[in-house]
Design a protein around this nucleic acid. Structure first.
Lengths: 199, 199
DNA sequence: ACCTCATTTGAACGCGGTTCAGTGATAGTG
DNA sequence: CACTATCACTGAACCGCGTTCAAATGAGGT
């Protein structure tokens, strides 16, 4: 039997990811504990380190899946959206909001994981982020056909960041809980206004 | 001598805040250690807990000062700004960006401190945030005199959140470092576009 | 059946926040 | 000034947690 070991390792790996995913989703990144993980997976604590370099590696793997689901949700929203490019932007942004609200702790984990200073973002992150930006850039190209490429890229980034900021602060408990509808209204307000053709 | 003890406590408190402020500014929230703090302040570790409930209390005190400096910077920018309300918004937002860039780690600490779930934000936070929102609301009232009050509040919040998002993601290393000028351009782009009077 | 070597184990390590019994200073009283 | 009751300060010890590594385990080859 050639792959007996690597099979077991792969199974453990998958298992750990699922358990970590559940803990993060239910209790947040801060509640993730190596010993709990091992207990639930029925393995020794050390076994985790046979499969992942450290807990951050495991979290990053979970985050990759979360980010992928997020991208898929936004893409699905775009697929169902009307032809109007402005509405497409609004629908996608509200899908982003919806995902963040429904997967709050998992979504927070995307940003709360501590990255070693000066460390480049992992490839899957850049790739997935690229998809999201493309979803935004396409309708924008329809709305503003005349713009220069660099200004276009800038506006794309600016829109994403703005929506992200609105969702981030809107869902933040410190802001004493902005109602969901208000968040959606803010998103629509900003996007419609920004994309209103000048004079 | 009546206040000998409380004098010393106050001095220690002030000292600890200054040291913590420096460590956070230079090395980030994650580098803050109770033992280092005690060593630098020339006191026992336990003494910290005579003055602050825990390290988070100390960090929150530092954050209050940081947030206050931030508010003062934005207010100063507003004072020097031209009369045009749109330009006032742009100048303030760029002051926000400038502060975040020049005090990156202290600014991050404002959001990275772990708040116990379901805990209300401290008073100073709400108050200072209120100031910032007022600075935004005033020019907006000039630009959009006809809007309903609730829509006004929503737009105020939305603008703040958008600028915050642009600065947050722009300064984030994971985004592979957006140039400072690009961040300022995104801010100006978004604000001018949003505040462009419709039709 | 025996040996060999990779894999897995879980007790132990180091670190860091927090505590608390012991020590020392303080201020009120004779 | 001496005495003492009270309170603050000290820092060694506690606990939880990520991570490691010497020892146990077991799989594959002869």
């Amino acid at each position: 039997m050639a792959g007996k070991v690597s099979e077991r390792r792969a199974a453990l790996r998958e298992n750990l990811v699922l358990i970590a995913e559940r803990i993060i989703a239910e209790q947040g990144l801060g509640a993730l504990r190596a010993r709990d993980l091992a207990a639930e997976a029925g393995c020794a604590v050390g076994a985790i380190y046979n499969v992942f370099g450290d807990l951050t590696d495991l979290v990053l793997t979970v985050n990759a899946r979360t980010f992928h689901r997020l991208g898929a949700d936004v893409a699905a929203a775009l697929a169902d959206a009307p032809q109007d490019p402005v509405e497409q932007l609004v629908v996608m942004a509200q899908a982003y909001h919806r995902f963040a609200a429904e997967n709050h702790l998992s979504w927070r984990a995307l940003f709360d994981v501590e990255r070693p200073a000066g460390q480049a973002a992992p490839d899957w992150y850049l790739e997935e982020m690229g998809h999201l930006l493309t979803y935004i850039a396409d309708p924008l190209a329809v709305i503003f056909p005349g713009r220069a490429a660099d200004e276009h890229a800038l506006l794309t980034r600016a829109l994403f960041s703005s929506v992200h900021g609105i969702v981030l602060l809107g869902l933040d408990q410190a802001s004493s809980g902005v109602p969901t509808d208000d968040i959606d209204r803010m998103i629509a307000l900003v996007l419609r206004q920004i994309t209103a053709s000048p004079q």
